[in-house]
């Protein structure tokens, strides 16, 4: 029920407007209807696509693919895996931590996290629809370039970091082996 709080609040504002400022309410409803039509066309296929990728992509292999043999190939792979629709960002954090422990490079993991959050394929389609192809292409390329630079900078800084905080995950502290940290419940939550 908590999820609908904001919806109810907005509904209440609409009702108040309808009573006290009918013209504004009508205006708002028209704008809402326009947007509803646009969203109703684009959202169902986006969610279906997310569903297909979720079911057909072998998630267990992800960690294997991003293992020790990183390099340029690993970078490309990190990017591609990040862009696939695999659930909200907080699912990616434990995955990233365990990949780092298995020897993945920091640059690759920054690329992985960054593309996971910023360059997801279904989201790109919605972006093209609402913000246009030129906007999407320019943002995609600039973001990708920025992620590579950030990754390299962080690699340089953290290479000599003695602490390596990601080596002790909170799950290990709770007495679980890192191998039990299978990402689960992808798509649960909004991002």
């Amino acid at each position: 029920m908590k999820r609908f709080t904001l919806v109810f609040l907005i509904l209440a504002i609409f009702i108040a407007l309808a009573i006290f400022a009918p013209a504004t309410a009508e205006h708002s409803s028209l704008a809402l209807w326009d947007y509803f039509k646009e969203m109703a066309l684009i959202m169902p296929p986006v969610f279906l696509l997310m569903g297909f990728m979720e079911v057909w992509l072998p998630k267990q292999n992800v960690q294997k693919w991003l293992g020790k043999e990183s390099g340029f190939k690993g970078g490309v792979l990190s990017l591609i895996l990040g862009t696939l629709p695999t659930g909200p960002l907080y699912v990616a954090f434990p995955m990233t931590a365990s990949l780092l422990r298995k020897g993945a490079s920091i640059a690759n993991m920054v690329l992985f996290l960054g593309s996971w959050a910023a360059l997801k394929i279904p989201q790109l389609m919605v972006e093209i629809k609402f913000l246009g192809l030129p906007f999407t292409i320019v943002r995609f390329s600039l973001t990708l370039a920025a992620l590579i630079v950030i990754g390299l900078i962080m690699e340089l800084i953290l290479k000599h970091d003695k602490k390596k905080e990601w080596m002790q995950s909170d799950l290990e502290l709770q007495g679980m082996k890192p191998d039990e940290m299978q990402p689960q419940g992808a798509l649960e939550g909004d991002r």
Binding site: R3, L6, I10, L11, F14, L17, S28, A31, Y35
Partner: peptide
């Protein structure tokens, strides 16, 4: 729910 909320916010923003 968040889609609905954004729809409402867009509507209100452009109505008001």
């Amino acid at each position: 729910p968040s889609l609905l909320a954004v729809l409402g916010i867009v509507g209100l923003t452009f109505g008001i």
